[in-house]
Design a protein around this nucleic acid. Structure first.
Lengths: 118, 118
DNA sequence: TTGACATATGCTCATATGGACATATATTCT
DNA sequence: AGAATATATGTCCATATGAGCATATGTCAA
């Protein structure tokens, strides 16, 4: 088997930097394809293809407007990524580096910094 | 050009489900390769190759222990993913769905739920 | 209708993938 | 030393990629 298709899920769709750029632009509002072509400096067919992938995983919705097609962000498929990666947050937020965990909590009690929710 | 190498960054490395599984196991503690082989039901060479990719993007560290090699999670390279995806959090947390934004804030004033800090 | 504009598809190509399987390297035991 | 254990590498293969370029489809204007 080769690598999983980019349309398999948001993880794969978003692994491509250009597609992240597209989403970043769309995050600020609906846009026609040509805007993306100009803003990203990509060839129009490439943009359309990237948009197709994003559409197939549900990351964007399209709306017809005359001869233009307005693309719009739909972040929901990103939630699984967020949820997965969030569980690793502690691993880079130091203070959870193994046994330091306990020591840190003791320090926090000293400082009266009771942050345990969320 | 073909797709970016899986070793390009964490985004690509983590697009492969097996590698996410490996990280999920390692999140609970250091493990030798064979543990992963058994727990994931994969062939040993495959596990070693996935570990190589994870090593190349810095997601795991290795430690020699006799004839075993203990792999350990290093979540730091996941932070860019977290940071990127987090900025889209509002897009699936409803109440930010375009113009509903404003209406929601009006409703919140009614309920006296003044949450503007974050 | 003809033509310009906007977007989507089709095709070719170089490349890297992940699985399967064989084999190399390293370490411990007898 | 020789065998068993633990892990890494190498090869082959089917597959999908993303870029480049040509072209089809669809829409509005004259």
């Amino acid at each position: 088997m080769a690598r999983a298709a980019t349309t398999t899920d948001a993880f794969n769709a978003v692994a491509e930097p250009r597609r992240r750029q597209i989403l970043d632009v769309l995050a600020e509002g609906e846009r026609p394809v040509n805007d993306l072509v100009e803003m990203l400096g990509l060839a129009q067919p490439q943009v359309s293809k990237h948009l197709r992938v994003l559409r197939e995983v549900g990351l964007v919705d399209v709306r017809e407007d005359g001869r233009k097609r307005l693309y719009r962000l739909n972040g929901l498929p990103l939630k699984p990524i967020h949820d997965w990666v969030k569980s690793y947050e502690e691993s880079w937020n130091e203070r959870f580096d193994g046994l330091d965990d306990v020591l840190d909590e003791l320090n926090m009690e000293e400082n009266g910094d009771g942050d345990d929710g969320e």
